[in-house]
Structures are given as C-alpha cells and as structure tokens.
Amino acid sequence: MTFGPSEVLLIGAGVLSLGILISLFRILLGPTSADRVVAMDTINTLVVGLMIALGAFYRQVVFIDIAIVYAILSFVTTIFIARYMEQSREKGGSD
C-alpha cells in the first residue's frame, strides 16, 4: 500500500472516530441531560467531519450529500431537545 494524500485522510477519519468514542463516555456518564446533549452535539459535528473524510477517501460524493443533510437534521434535533428542556422546567416537570 502506497502512502499518499488519500491515506492521510483515512488516518484523519480514524482520529475522528476516537473523538466520537471519547465523547460517547460523556453521554454515558453525564450527570445532567444538558451534558448529554452537549456530547451529542459534539458527536454530530464529528460524524459530519467523518463523512466528509470518508467521502473523499472512497471518492463517493453521496457521502458528502448525506453529511449536508445530517448537519441540518442534527441541528434541528439539537434545537428541539433544547426547547423541550426549557419547557419541561417551566411546566414544573423534572429533567
């Protein structure tokens, strides 16, 4: 296997996966639900990066299209959960 620019991308994708793994522990540990949402937001960003890197490595443009849609949908998810956290408190519920 030759070591060219594409293989560097694969190493970058590996590091991103490691970052996702570290963030997952925050979802498992996180004392409050807000901590878990922060970790989820981090993972979403890293997954978008991972899709871009793998799309370039495998020369599959569809990966990057999905990364765009994933970025928008994950943003909507984050906003939705944040809204839910705000309102559940106002109505007197616990988080």
Binding site: A34, V37, D41, I79, M85, S88
Partner: peptide, 12 residues
C-alpha cells in the same frame, strides 16, 4: 446549537 443548549441549560 451551542447557544440553544446554553440557554436551555440556564433556563432549566
């Protein structure tokens, strides 16, 4: 998104 989480955390 970060701003939304921070605001929700503060208000909750």
């Amino acid at each position: 998104g970060a701003h939304a989480i921070a605001r929700a955390a503060r208000r909750s």
